[in-house]
């Protein structure tokens, strides 16, 4: 499929499968209208800007990268000594189109007793939230799930999924990578070459979520490359990745995977297969997250 073909397919796909919780389906390049309403000064508290979940259909995808064939790949992306990449089967799940914003996180901070780093709330409302630890991100997911269950304005389809046992949580690193790269093993969400007009990297700070349009991205997700690193629900372990055993060594010090690179990174770090890891208590200016809707 040509790049144009991929874009058209993605657009069709978006219209069909996007669970637009904040207001219309919308494109990848602009913040949701519903979110605008919340971010505005006139937005009534405690309005919640529900995420715009995008369906990632189940099926296999190529995970990892082989440093032998891809000079930009890091050693920890290699699948195994004998194999450069692996194929992983992922069930259908939903991934938020955008990273969680400062405004969304502030709504959580206002509505809950969870202690957050004041720096997390200091950024522009439409920018991705940063200075959040891994437990902070999960606390947000738990709160959001409760809000979706409670709020009458939350879409019936999502309420139904939650009623069927789905959960709002962080994506595993496999889910994240599939969301970023699709099924064809591309290096970047838009293709094989770095593009400064497609993602916020090699830059000085964060940008409002969805500022960089990405019509070529497989599922229309914004900022899967750059802006802020995104926490995942996977403990850092050497490949090969095994979804059925995505559990950590209980005796080792905790280290959790983050993906996507940030505004301050080089092109090599913002590839779809780049694996970062951080102390779960780390609250940094370049680490944020996005939420997923999964059945586990």
């Amino acid at each position: 499929m040509t790049r144009r073909g991929v874009a058209a397919a993605a657009a069709r796909y978006l219209l069909a499968s996007s669970l637009a919780l904040g207001g219309g389906a919308g494109g990848a390049g602009a913040p949701r209208p519903g979110m605008e309403a919340v971010l505005g000064a006139q937005a009534p508290s405690p309005a919640v800007a529900f995420p715009d979940f995008v369906e990632i259909p189940g099926g296999p995808f190529v995970m990892g990268a082989d440093p032998a064939t891809d000079p930009s790949a890091f050693d920890n992306e290699r699948w195994s000594p004998a194999q450069g990449t692996g194929t992983v089967e992922a069930s259908t799940f939903y991934l938020a189109r955008h990273e969680v914003t400062v405004a969304q996180f502030a709504a959580f901070a206002r509505a809950s007793s969870w202690r957050v780093d004041p720096q997390a709330l200091a950024g522009p409302p439409s920018h991705p939230v940063a200075f959040v630890s891994w437990p902070d991100a999960l606390a947000y997911c738990r709160w959001l799930e409760g809000e979706v269950r409670r709020a009458p304005e939350a879409p019936a389809r999502v309420k139904q999924l939650l009623a069927e046992g789905w959960r709002v949580t962080l994506p595993t690193e496999a889910e994240w990578e599939k969301g970023a790269r699709g099924t064809d093993g591309r290096r970047y969400p838009w293709g094989s070459e770095p593009r400064r007009d497609r993602a916020n990297y090699e830059n000085r700070g964060t940008a409002a979520v969805g500022t960089y349009p990405c019509p070529e991205c497989p599922y229309g997700l914004a900022d899967m490359s750059g802006n802020v690193w995104e926490w995942t629900g996977s403990p850092y372990q050497p490949y090969p990745y095994d979804a059925s055993d995505d559990r950590a060594n209980l005796e080792a010090d905790a280290l959790w995977v983050m993906r996507g690179g940030s505004f301050g990174d080089q092109a090599r770090q913002v590839r779809g297969s780049t694996r970062g890891a951080a102390d779960p208590g780390a609250r940094r200016a370049f680490i944020g997250f996005r939420v997923a809707l999964v059945k586990r």
Partner: peptide, 12 residues
């Protein structure tokens, strides 16, 4: 978890 005790993270 923030103290890097892995079961704490898994319990979240």
């Amino acid at each position: 978890c923030e103290g890097r005790f892995q079961p704490g993270c898994l319990n979240l």
